[in-house]
Amino acid sequence: MRRDALRAPLVTWGPAVLALLAWALTAQGAVPPARWAGGALLAFALPGIAATGALFPTRPLSNVERAVLAPALSLAVVVLGGLLVDVLGMRLTAGTWGGLTAIATVVLAALRYLREFLAARDGRPVTVDAVPDEESGRFAAADRRTAVLKLGSLALVAVLLGGAFWIAMRSAHHQTEAGYTALSIIQEDDNNPGDGMRPVTVAVECHEDDTTRYLVQVQGAPSGTVTRIVVSLDPGEVFKSDLLVPSADKVTAELFKGTDTTPYRSVFLSGLQ
């Protein structure tokens, strides 16, 4: 009896309490796993559970219907609630999303309580349980061995899917792609246009397989100003150099890889009129 006495308020208010807890967990400072759990509950479960309870407090629903309505109505709360928040002129941040879903859950739980209260006052039946789904009766023996077999099979499914994902991630990360290097030149804002020179930034992005040595040569034709820079970059590393080059001349930047004598990459800026 005590368990039953506790059950109704737990079913009615449980999602609301959990939602407030999850909102706290989604705060920026929480540890990642706690944020993941809290965010998933608020985005996919709790508002929908509360909405189902608020809409159908006195009607029987099957377990399947409850299982489907929970994520569906949660997503509906996110979409329509987000629109409302935006219309009210508030920014949609982590705190807003958490607050929106948590408050919606509390409000819906209160609505459920109210409807249950009114139903009870009017003498109408109030349901708490899901309607059991019909079964054929062809069950295996309900012993420990069966339970272990079923749980073991489900665990095997999880392991196999995890393995499939690991294989996919590994092969995607190790997909053979030839290394490359990007060379770029950009003209920056000229604060002193009358001096016949212009500022440019030359950059080298290394995406080779190993540490690579480069020679960057910048030449302003026809005056022939030449700047040479030798740099060694690790994969993923970016080199940048700010230079002053003649304004009227075409400026060419060439990149030589290792000891090559022919340019590996070449970019240019036309002379300003």
Partner: peptide, 17 residues
Amino acid sequence: HIQPGAAGAGESAYGRP
């Protein structure tokens, strides 16, 4: 009939597990 919050509430009118 369930009185929300009242002691003894929680009995379902429908099939219990």
